[in-house]
Design a protein around this nucleic acid. Sequence first.
DNA 1: GTTACACGACCGACTGGTCGGTCGGTTGTG
DNA 2: CACAACCGACCGACCAGTCGGTCGTGTAAC
Lengths: 169, 169
Amino acid sequence: MSNRERILQTARRLAIEAGSVPSLGAVATASGVSKGGLMHHFRSRAALLDGIAAQAIEAMDEALAAAVERGNVTETWLRLSMSREDADLYRALLVSFTDSGSTTEALLRRSAEATQRWERLIADEVGDPVAAAAIRLLGDGIVMNSVTGDRLPPLESVLEWLKPRTGRN
Amino acid sequence: MSNRERILQTARRLAIEAGSVPSLGAVATASGVSKGGLMHHFRSRAALLDGIAAQAIEAMDEALAAAVERGNVTETWLRLSMSREDADLYRALLVSFTDSGSTTEALLRRSAEATQRWERLIADEVGDPVAAAAIRLLGDGIVMNSVTGDRLPPLESVLEWLKPRTGRN
DNA sequence: GTTACACGACCGACTGGTCGGTCGGTTGTG
DNA sequence: CACAACCGACCGACCAGTCGGTCGTGTAAC
């Protein structure tokens, strides 16, 4: 594995653990490279965040593409939203974007595009754009709620509740 | 208005504008008090966050209490979630909680309690705990989505979509 | 009625520490 | 030699929290 990849992996893990992407020094140390080494691969903090986000978006794209073939995009979306690890990562990224002034315009745009892509996949499955938007937003809400660790309704009951409103009738 | 109140108001406004609660110095300056003056009223950054959150929670409690009498808790919940100002404030608070190490245990608990309170109000109205949870999470998702400024489906269509799944049948 | 004192509100310089980013230099490989 | 990968000391900005001090007011002793 290249050092660049190792840095990305480590940063991802630290972000999940800490709830936000830690300092560049911390990421460098944990990755086993010097600060200069990190800066060689990522010219700024924004570039690092960008890299982590790109990785996360790609992973979600792949998971949903596989779900399309299985015909359970909605379930996969909600299941991943409930996943501790993924939720933590997405929340950490959101925090890092919002908080620092290091948000790239390009990153925001790519993030918005990914969101639209995923919502379209859901819409293709449930056949109703409003339902698709609601399901996507429901997932985002689930992600955000893991901050306080609230009890969530089990996935099955949510899908059951969703049922009469989805599926091409 | 007391200086304490003025600080709280200013901090709230800055948080909405900035997407996170700014530094104590910035809040102090914008409030027209010195750093020491701010520290006199709020002994730590955590205390300030706590104060802002308490204010926000109280405002939401009042809005929902009024909605109960009007019988439109669900609509009010979603409408406030879509409100630019409220969404920005809640997101800023969430960011500040997650990011810094200054999250109070008490604050997290009070926040979780408020969440439960609101979800119960929704459940009372729609008569289905799963639907209530979904509606609450939907609102949270809407709040989080205003980061990227995605287009949201209009409130009316969401309520329309919700209709067959709510109301005591 | 004035002097003395206590007290809360408020001030702003300062401290200790963190962080993003820079830079001159070294290593290793084609 | 050239060039990319990598190192780590260093810089300046910033930030939360501290501290010694000022000022106005209420209160009580004389």
